[in-house]
Design a protein around this nucleic acid. Structure first.
Lengths: 213, 213, 213, 213
DNA sequence: CATGAATGAGGTTTCATTCAT
DNA sequence: AATGAATGAAACCTCATTCAT
């Protein structure tokens, strides 16, 4: 599930031995910026993510942003990438922990994995679900859905859960519908309406049932 | 399913005998502006909807926009309102034409009604589904989904299609999921992937089946 | 004390016998507009005097303003002229009513005459004292002070109140200082601080005393 | 007589060894802008003080104004503050240089101190006396008069020049009348009519005489 | 005469990015 | 590497005035 340094316009070029080596300081600064950006997105929406605002929130000069990122879009993408990676990890870990594999179990596990990440990283909700107006995010979001769908499909096939060939399109539909369920469930507050999540799990499970072996 | 002239800052006030009466000319101009805005949203997204861009596309001075609309948001809302009204009409008409009422038939009819509107008004997809970043649109979009869900629920209850009380939340979830299906189906091209639409109809029907009488 | 139709870009052109003759209707409309403008200036200052605001307040189409006035400045000037005329009348009337003529009595009578007008026409304070930023008003204000100074000087000379020739400049200074006294006295509230007015009368009287016969 | 860096949105932060240090260059630019603004106000009045006009006159991009000032009002206030500070300094210096203290000497010295500043900074006349329409300036102007009146009163009391308690209102009236004298004296040309100034000094002195010890 | 409609000109402010140091 | 300063471009909106009817 790819490693994703796309979006980071900075190359680690390190030089010598210092107390706090360049590379390390740089990494910290990047985190500092991304954290600030994350906070901003969460609090005020994607549109409020101006360079000035990020810089202020991160307590970094505006010009310095361009030391670590190529442009504003780059920051946004890096932000997304960071959360996305965490999402993938969580998904992978939870899938590995399933006791009795079945298609419904797969669906439920995946969806619950996402809710865990949402709980930890509320900015994700904001960006992923509401920030879709931004072309870069929209594009990246679509890609990610495709990836997840593909990965889950592969996983299910490998585990012998499917009765026959399932077109990628179907898997993608399931993933995207799942996302919308989250969108609705997390629209009101950032805790998420768990009842709706349950309904969503039922819907997607039910939809995929015919493909189950 | 209200008529919705909200968002139109122009009032039809006088009439008179003229070749092209004032009122008429005014209406035309409003359409001209909305069409242009619609085109822009479709081509470049909601963020590209600047007053300047609209004015240029509509071949109208920027200042003239403010003859017909109170501010930029007003334009956006009028745009939405126009499509929304058409959607409601189509839905109403098609529901009235159903032969054998049943919950699945209801779902299918409703979803197909929407596809008809999408075909006629592609900008709708863009605004409704992708323009959600804009606070005004987001708010209005949410309202509309609630309305549709509520109307369909009432319709189904009145027709005795439901076995027991269905919480509004469930209906809303179904509507929103339906929207996402369309989003995906219409993502690639504006003709819409009909296969995906069929899948979506199956998914939503299946989901609601337990509530069917 | 001049007649002052300057500023009124409208010519009375009347035509025939009607219930409410043109001329009359026109005059009414002009008053209506001036009253509205007066109100606006009073409430929101000279800068808020936009054509749109005037039109709205007067319940008259914006375009119609141009039937009665040449341009916006014309309205402002007409406004000033109206109050100015009233001021002159009051001054004249009160001067005529003085029992025992003397220079101090003249000063006191004049200043009290102005306070009467201020009480009746609070917009005057706003325009005359605060609206000086507007070049037209500034110019007109200067003219008016010169007129008043000249008239009072003539009056005093005719009444044999002066011991010797008083340069116009001196009279003007006295008038302008008097105005500033009012400015200060009426700065806080529109009722005017009468104590300050008394002080002002004493100051100006004292200043002119050396010229008294 | 505070030092008044209010209105200056720029903070001097660092310094270093450079031919023309940052700080210095910044200060110059601020002066450049204020000088341009001053010129504009003088030539065309406060209303002509648009950001565009200032930028043009200062030969600086409009956007750069916002490097040094928070908004347009900030420029105006900085302008006022600059002149105001100079006025206070002059007043203080001249008061300190009085040989034989007396109330008339105090009045004369103060008024002559102002004429010195007017001679050096003609824009002051424009802003202070004619720009009062602007709310920010009006407010600041009022404050300043109160300050000067209060300071002079204190000074006179400390020097034992007053026979009994003089209400602040009286001092304020004297100061404001003095200002109007200047307004008139400097109305025609910027050299100022010295004869009128003399008259003004006499008037104010005479007015305050009763309070003299 | 009356006026709805139209508009060129201009208003202030913010933005993302680059540059000189 | 770091950053204060600089800025072209663009954002939305309002204004006074004119014109066609």
């Amino acid at each position: 599930m790819l490693e994703g340094n796309r979006g980071t316009g900075v190359a680690a070029r390190r030089s010598a031995t210092r107390r706090v080596p360049r590379q390390e300081r740089s990494r910290r600064r990047v985190e500092q910026i991304l954290d600030a950006a994350s906070r901003l997105v969460l609090e005020r929406g994607v549109d409020a993510l101006t360079t000035r605002a990020i810089a202020e929130a991160a307590d970094v000069p505006v010009a310095s942003l361009y030391q670590y990122f190529h442009d504003k879009e780059d920051i946004l993408l890096a932000l997304v990438e960071r959360d996305r990676a965490e999402m993938d990890e969580q998904l992978l870990a939870d899938l590995a922990g399933i006791d009795e594999l079945s298609l419904p179990a797969l669906v439920e596990t995946a969806m619950r994995a996402f809710t865990k990440v949402y709980a930890r990283r509320p900015a994700f909700v904001e960006i992923w679900l509401r920030g879709r107006d931004n072309p870069a995010i929209r594009e990246r979001g679509r890609e990610h859905s495709v990836e997840i769908a593909s990965n889950l499909l592969q996983f299910a096939e490998a585990a012998g859960l499917l009765s026959h060939d399932v077109p990628p399109k179907i898997a993608l539909l399931a993933v995207e519908v799942g996302e919308r369920v989250f969108q609705l469930a997390y629209a009101q507050d950032l805790e998420g309406d768990q009842e709706l999540v349950e309904e969503g799990i039922r819907m997607v499970s039910g939809y995929l049932a015919p493909y189950s072996r």
